[in-house]
Amino acid sequence: MTKRQPAASSARAPSGARGRTVRAPAKRRRVDCLLAPEEVHRLFAALRAANPAPKSELEYVNPYTLLVAVVLSAQATDAGVNKATRALFAKADTPQKMLALGEDVVREHIRTIGLFRTKAKNVIALSRRLVETTGGEVPRDRALLESLPGVGRKTANVVLNVAFGEPTIAVDTHIFRVCNRTGLAIGRTPLEVERVLERVVPDEFRLHAHHWLILHGRYVCKARRPECGRCPIREICRYPDKTV
């Protein structure tokens, strides 16, 4: 009995490809920073010259009150948070004192802030967690901070940077906008932008990079209409629609 030969494949090799290996086209590497290293250095040098000692605009008295203030600042202005927390922190500047006040009192103090009910619950919950796990001390550890109720990566980075002097970069809406507009760090998410910044920001600027970028976005590179005419990094910026 004659064995049947395997059926020939109906797929044809691309024209001119018979007898040789055809390689798939290489994927294009996504550009995540449009600026040359020397331009990145000039950008931060210009921001430093305009504001040599940048600071957080949130008012706080210790790492714990800073943590609470940053949690409250989500979808709220720093000025609005400061107005609400002055009286609150005068009464409760430790987790123990905050728990003694209770959620109802905390809620009344912060009711002018957006999402105040949820935030009051988180403030009490994170205060209880701190008392139970660290004796009331704010941990100098991102993973532990992110495990607290109401605390995400951005909040943890702010606390590590401001309270403990860690060279972290917290990417909020202002920094996200500035980085994508200027070409300093292109990314679809805050985490993508953060990863690019971690790689391209020179060491000498890392500690204050967060504040320089957020303040620049808040007061110069505004969302609706950037004030390019008074921008110290105008000549470096890759934004195509600069205002006069």
Rank of each mutant, 00 (worst) to 15 (best):
V81R: 01
E38D: 12
F44M: 05
S127H: 06
L148H: 13
I113F: 02
P190I: 03
I169D: 00
L148A: 12
T173K: 00
C33I: 09
Q96V: 08
F89Y: 05
K242L: 07
G135P: 04
P190K: 11
I113N: 03
H210W: 11
K97F: 01
F44Y: 14
P202N: 10
V68I: 14
V81T: 02
K121I: 10
T173R: 01
F176L: 11
H109W: 09
P226C: 07
Q5Y: 09
L99Q: 11
P25Y: 05
E194F: 10
L115Q: 04
F205G: 03
G19I: 00
L207D: 06
E38N: 14
I214Y: 01
R206V: 08
A223C: 10
R225T: 15
V162I: 15
T65S: 10
R12D: 08
K222H: 13
R12F: 08
P232A: 07
H109N: 04
V193A: 00
T65L: 05
P167Y: 01
L144D: 13
R199Y: 04
R206G: 02
I113T: 01
I169E: 00
G150D: 08
V61R: 06
C33Q: 13
S9H: 09
K27E: 10
A13N: 13
T168H: 04
G150Q: 13
T118G: 07
T173D: 00
R195H: 14
G114S: 05
R30V: 14
